[in-house]
Amino acid sequence: MISVRGLNKRFGTLQVLRDVNLEVRKGEAVVVIGPSGSGKSTLLRCIIGLEAPDAGEVFVDGRPFIRRVDGEHGPLRRTREFRSVQRLMGMVFQQFTMFPHLTVLQNVTLAPIRVLGLKGEEAAARARRLLAKVGLEDKALAHPEKLSGGQKQRASIARALALEPQIMLFDEVTSALDPELIHEVLSVMKQLAADGMTMMVVTHEMGFAHKVADRVVFMDGGRIIEEGKPSEVFTSPKEVRTKAFIDKVLTHI
């Protein structure tokens, strides 16, 4: 579903991604873990085309999405084809990105109406169905300011799903939440994985990674150090760095 080949990304002199290769199969939930600054978020941002890599390729559903040869610069060109491939992916961020001047319902219907050309009622029906799915049917007419952090994140998930993406990317979506709100967001994501959605999740929630991931990818220093089934990576990591990281986060619990 997603195919990443030879991805490299620098911010100034800092090399954030080094030769990253990754395959995500259809229906698979891949959880990316690793210390802060290991390049996890940048990897997601490159995959969805928010960040231009310095070199490498990204294919989505077999379609070429990003292709950069070394030394190419400047922002990605947002052509029609680029946007139509980008739309196969939905993304939820760590920060709350609900549009504050629109109601929850308007947030969710905006793209289906403007991008997919759905009629108002059609988009609203779809939005209400998705809001019910994330447990927010009674918040449709509220403005985001009236929602808790967890509700905002669930609404953002509904907004992304409204475009019927084939892949969902989650970039530390629970990191800005109060601890008691984390669970409600994770359980929506868990449900999504159970429904067979292809997912790439960057998170520090090791419990979630352990239970939900089909595959865990450990990154450090801009490289993929190790990947495998959660049972393998968490209990018998092959690499020293993975072991050190896992020991550190698990003794925490």
Binding site: I48, G49, L50, R78, R83, S84, Q86, R87, M89, G90, M91, F93, Q95, T97, F99, L110, A111, R114, V115, S156, R159, A160, L163
Partner: peptide, 11 residues
Amino acid sequence: DQVEAAEILGL
């Protein structure tokens, strides 16, 4: 991030 959210929604 507001702008980016709008971008990845395909607007």
